[in-house]
Amino acid sequence: MKIIYHCYGGSHSSVLAAALHLKMLDPARPPAFEDMMLLPYFDKTRNIDFGTIRHMGTDDLGHEVYVLGKKNMGDRCTAMIMSVARLLGVEHEVIAVNCMSRVNLFMMIGGFISRRLGWTTIGRPILFRGTRDAFRNIANLVEITRLKTMQ
């Protein structure tokens, strides 16, 4: 099965969710700044990465985990992925997860300053604060997703 976590930029919440799914992070403990920055793709994506499904790893059950930046496509992105999967006859082999519902204002502002404006010195501390606050929510989303993959 392929699991696609998607968010606005494919750079923060989706990467965090994918990292939690792949057990790169401990769901019981919000990561330190350095651990977060070590995650592949975390706060590192560029404009050309929008719309690209990027591989993050394979989980312990053999499911492949991906991240995607879909800008403001919202839940339409999930609907589109699932509709196209149905068209191809692979709807039972993919799960698309929208991470935006678990993102808070600090993550949005920090992410915008860091990625869009390129001011990482200012943006990253705000992003870090937001990510720590949202961590449990994102971990919960991942837990739900992992349960779905076991059904």
């Binding site: 403001n72 496509m73 339409r76 589109m80 992925i81 999967a85 082999e93």
Partner: peptide
Amino acid sequence: YAFGAGANYELAPAIIADLRDLFGFSEEEL
């Protein structure tokens, strides 16, 4: 088919192409 992808619709063809490739389908099919 037709699909409405919202304000950032221009990303949709790239996402669909990536998804198609992930599952081993080709441009001949989608």
